[in-house]
Design a protein around this nucleic acid. Structure first.
Ligand code: MN
Ligand code: MN
Ligand code: ZN
Ligand code: ZN
Lengths: 148, 148
DNA sequence: ATGGTAATGATAATCATTTTCAATAACAAT
DNA sequence: ATTGTTATTGAAAATGATTATCATTACCAT
């Protein structure tokens, strides 16, 4: 049954339940490509649905992150932030963060060269330290157009 | 007067004062190449000098970071961590973080290739987004030898 | 030696995130 | 459709890291 939400199927048959709060939270994440904090998501939802509690936002975001549906960011501004994940290819990007106003810019330039270097580094580090690398995090800090 | 500590001069003549707590904190940072949290530093110092308060640790670490003497790390384990900075060349490195036990490994492999890519990326991002890039952060997450 | 003031430490306050727990609602089995 | 199981929820309290307050202390230029 199409139209019931593209995520519903990912919740069925795993002892998990498809609930209204979860659908609402995913809708809110879809509404923008910004990197939203739990509180921001809560406030946005709260305007039209005050019955969903902040605790549920936290729990759901954590779950969605574990499921791989969203991506958790920890830039250093005191709260966690989340963004929806796309398919691997179209999703992979890094962040440009303004240390003055906190603006976050997505970028995916030189991804190919970067991936090559990452692969090489991962292989070397794996051999050297016997360390299994699952993912990486790259971010640039500086001043955005307005703040420079 | 040598022996009085290699950092003392960095505190003179800027309206800043060279104090016993600051010297002790820098000593503690020198004692290991681990990435210590404020609380860890506090506990280590507290064993032989219980007169230094946690608040001072926080304030001093923040100051030292601003001065460029130490480097602040925010891996995602709930507390900030700091490490001493060496000279630019010998210092520059990234981190390998075990998501299971929290172990942090420094590495500096492929730094040259990496710097080349970083420079290229920085230039492109600057042109594209009119963003001034001051520094970057790269870290790999995975499982260490013991935790795999 | 002394005065101005940067630095300190104890305490309280903030603030994001977690935990607890009783009530609710999905949903598989009837 | 009704039921029973239990995953999920929301309110409230708890936690834990970091910050703000403020009276006291101690650098250090004079
Ligand atoms: Mn992004
Ligand atoms: Mn390091
Ligand atoms: Zn900005
Ligand atoms: Zn480990």
């Amino acid at each position: 049954m199409p139209g019931k939400g593209k995520w519903q199927n990912r919740f069925s048959g795993h002892g998990r339940r498809w609930t209204m709060p979860r659908e609402t939270i995913l809708q809110q994440l879809s509404r923008t490509n910004k990197h939203q904090s739990p509180k921001e998501i809560f406030l946005a939802i709260n305007k039209f649905n005050p019955s969903i509690g902040l605790t549920t936002i936290y729990r759901t975001l954590e779950l969605l992150d574990k499921m791989g549906v969203i991506h958790k960011l920890r830039i250093g501004d005191g709260q966690v932030r989340y963004e929806l994940r796309g398919k691997e290819k179209e999703y992979h990007h890094h962040h440009l963060i303004c240390t003055s106003c906190g603006k976050i810019i997505d970028y995916a330039d030189f991804i190919d060269e970067e991936m090559e270097l990452i692969k090489k580094t991962e292989k070397a580090l794996n051999k050297k330290h016997n360390f299994i690398i699952n993912n990486h995090n790259i971010e640039f800090y500086g001043l955005c157009e307005k703040c420079r």
